[in-house]
Structures are given as structure tokens and as C-alpha cells.
């Protein structure tokens, strides 16, 4: 990895240059909540001033720019006795500016499922490879436990990564494209003093984490505690509303439906992101539901996050962003559930 220093004024130039000919998605303040806390989302921006890189977290993850909530897998033209199938993938580049380490880790996990495993998804890969990603370091967000999952720092999966050193950014350059884009503005070489400052900043961020979750031995524990009362306790609270999966940066499950136009001349096979907490997730043709209970569905969401995914890819699916915990009106959250499961063992 190469490193450079970028003055904040130059960074602004860089963003303006990118804005001139590209779609740019960045954190934007969208309001304040009932307690006065500012709320942010990753949204398309058209000027530098709309961007707020000091954001704590976003309510939604960046995944929807890679896995849209709704997407046509194919379209059909019906023509008397025949039909014709058409498939299109994204070709337009997009700048993803200001992603935190957890969101980049989430993409790396999605890569494992959707780009590297059996049946790589051309829909995902086309979006992923058309994304120019600029990450940024940040103070730990409230309730975030990414440090426990090793996702608080990131070494790949981005083009550029910024660490705020006050007047300037310390820039990690991970790709050739990142390097070439950076050539468009003035940068400085990194001195020993800068490196020391960078490491100090990193350390102070590391030390600031408040929430810790013990995920050790969790795959085994989840098996042992499959019938645990813990699931009844939390399952009874679950609204089965799917909000957790919608905001989760790594939930990728979906459902497919088909639509036909009113003139019956065209149709589409539509993919919609789903949630394993929704009541009909495992209902088969004929009506049998393999998971009719809330607690079973909730349990399986955790099972996939912390056991199933580990079995397949040697790491949990969760990145510790706690967006699911924050969005849940019933206050169901991973740190508390995992703590309960760990307590059962004593």
C-alpha cells in the first residue's frame, strides 16, 4: 500500500473533480431524531457542501448501492407464440465516498458469497467493479462493536482510505485507479512525523471503543444453545418487521416475483431483498411454513450471522455496526443477545 498526505482544501478539489462527471454517493445529514441526535444516510450528492464526513453512522448501510432493494434479473418480451429474454448489468461507474471500515468489510464479506463462491453473481460484480470507494476513519459509533469482530480497520476492498489528521488527511492508496485519481490534485509525501501522528490517531480510535462482544466459541455455543430459553425471551419481542435485515450491510437474502405488463406484451423477473424474520420466508408452495414462529426466525438470523457463515467462510457475517440494534423498535440487539447466550453457559 502507498501513502500520501492530502490537505483538506485539495481534498475538496478532488471531490469537486469527481462530482463533475460521476455519480457520487456520500453521507448526508437527513434530520435529527427525537433526542436531538443528527441522522445521516448515504445518498447521491451534487456538491461538496452536502457531504458530512464527520457523521457518526448512517441508519442504512451502503449495501443497497451494490444489492438494490429491487432489481430486474431479466425482462421478457412476449410475442405471440414465443418470448425473448433480456438481461442487463450495470455499466456506469459510481463513487462511494466516506464509507467507514465496517461498510467496506461488509462488501468484502458480500464478495465472498456473491463474487467468489459458486455461481458468482454478475449483477453484483458489475456494481462492485463499477464502484470507486473512498473510505474514512472515524471515532467509534455508539453501540458499535466492530472492534470485537476485527472490522474496525480495513486493509483492502477500497481505492482510497482517509484518516483525519486535523488540517489534512492521511491517505492509504490501495489501487492503481486510486493512485491515478489522486494525481489530479496536489499531495505530499508522508514524513516519519506524519506516520507517528497517524498511528497515534489510530490508537486513540482503538482505545475509545466502549462496546465489546465476546464472539469466541460462538459457533459452537449457538449449536449447544439451540433450544435455549434465550430465544423465547428475544423472540417474543420480535416484530418480524424485517427492519434489521433491511439496514444490515451484509444481509443478502431475497425473493423473486414476476410481473406482466397490462398489455401482456412484456414481463419482468424481479428480485427483492427479503428478511429471514418475515413470516412467510420459509413457506413452500402448498402453504407449509418451515419457520412459523418468531423466535425460530430470529434464532436463524443469528445462526446464519455467527455460525453458518463461519462454517462457510471462517468468519462471522456480522461486522458489528449495530445498525440492526439501533433500528429495532423492540430493542433486540446483538450485544445483548450474544451476552445472554454466553451467560447460559455459566
Amino acid at each position: 500500500m502507498l501513502f500520501k498526505l492530502l490537505d483538506k482544501d485539495e481534498f475538496k478539489n478532488l471531490v469537486n473533480i469527481l462530482l463533475q462527471s460521476n455519480e457520487v454517493i456520500a453521507p448526508k445529514q437527513v434530520g435529527v431524531n427525537v433526542t436531538g441526535k443528527t441522522l445521516h444516510q448515504y445518498l447521491p450528492v451534487t456538491s461538496f457542501d452536502e457531504i458530512d464526513l464527520t457523521y457518526e453512522t448512517t441508519q442504512y448501510s451502503a449495501k443497497t448501492y451494490f444489492l438494490p432493494y429491487k432489481e430486474n434479473l431479466s425482462t421478457y418480451r412476449f410475442d405471440e407464440k414465443d418470448w425473448k429474454q433480456e438481461i442487463r448489468y450495470r455499466q456506469e461507474p459510481r463513487v462511494m465516498l466516506g464509507l467507514h471500515a465496517c461498510d467496506i468489510h461488509a462488501l468484502l464479506k458480500l464478495d465472498k458469497v456473491l463474487a467468489r463462491d459458486n455461481f458468482p453473481s454478475p449483477y453484483y460484480i458489475a456494481r462492485r467493479k463499477n464502484a470507486f470507494i473512498i473510505g474514512i476513519d472515524h471515532e467509534p459509533c455508539e453501540g458499535g462493536f466492530c472492534r470485537s469482530l476485527g472490522t474496525d480497520t480495513v486493509n483492502n476492498g477500497f481505492d482510497l482510505f482517509l484518516t483525519d489528521l486535523g488540517e489534512r488527511y492521511f491517505v492509504s492508496i490501495n489501487t492503481d485507479l486510486g493512485y491515478r485519481v489522486l494525481l489530479q490534485v496536489k499531495t505530499k509525501d508522508v514524513t516519519e512525523e506524519d506516520t507517528r501522528k497517524y498511528l497515534l490517531t489510530r490508537k486513540s480510535i482503538s482505545d475509545a471503543f466502549q462496546t465489546h462482544v465476546n464472539v469466541q466459541n460462538l459457533p459452537n455455543l449457538l449449536d449447544l444453545e439451540f433450544e435455549s430459553k434465550v430465544w423465547n425471551k428475544w423472540g417474543q419481542k420480535c416484530l418480524s418487521c424485517g427492519s434489521c435485515s433491511m439496514v444490515c450491510p451484509t444481509c443478502y437474502c431475497y425473493g423473486v416475483t414476476e410481473r406482466v405488463s397490462m398489455d401482456f406484451k412484456s414481463g419482468a423477473k424481479v428480485k427483492q431483498l427479503y428478511s429471514c424474520n418475515l413470516v412467510d420466508f420459509a413457506t413452500v408452495a402448498g402453504g407449509h411454513n418451515f419457520r412459523p414462529n418468531r423466535e425460530t426466525r430470529l434464532k436463524y438470523r443469528y445462526y446464519h450471522q455467527h455460525r453458518g457463515f463461519v462454517e462457510s467462510y471462517d468468519e462471522p457475517k456480522c461486522v458489528g455496526c449495530n445498525r440492526c440494534g439501533r433500528v429495532c423498535l423492540a430493542e433486540i440487539n446483538p450485544p445483548d443477545i450474544i451476552r445472554d447466550i454466553q451467560m447460559e453457559e455459566r
Binding site: Q41, L43, Y60, T64, C241, G242, S243, M246, L278
Partner: peptide, 12 residues
């Protein structure tokens, strides 16, 4: 048959 939350979330 699922709750409105799903679609509300899909509207950001």
C-alpha cells in the same frame, strides 16, 4: 403479508 416497515425501509 409482512409489515409496512419492510417497504418503509426500502424507501430509506
Amino acid at each position: 403479508v409482512y409489515p409496512v416497515c419492510v417497504e418503509c425501509k426500502q424507501k430509506f
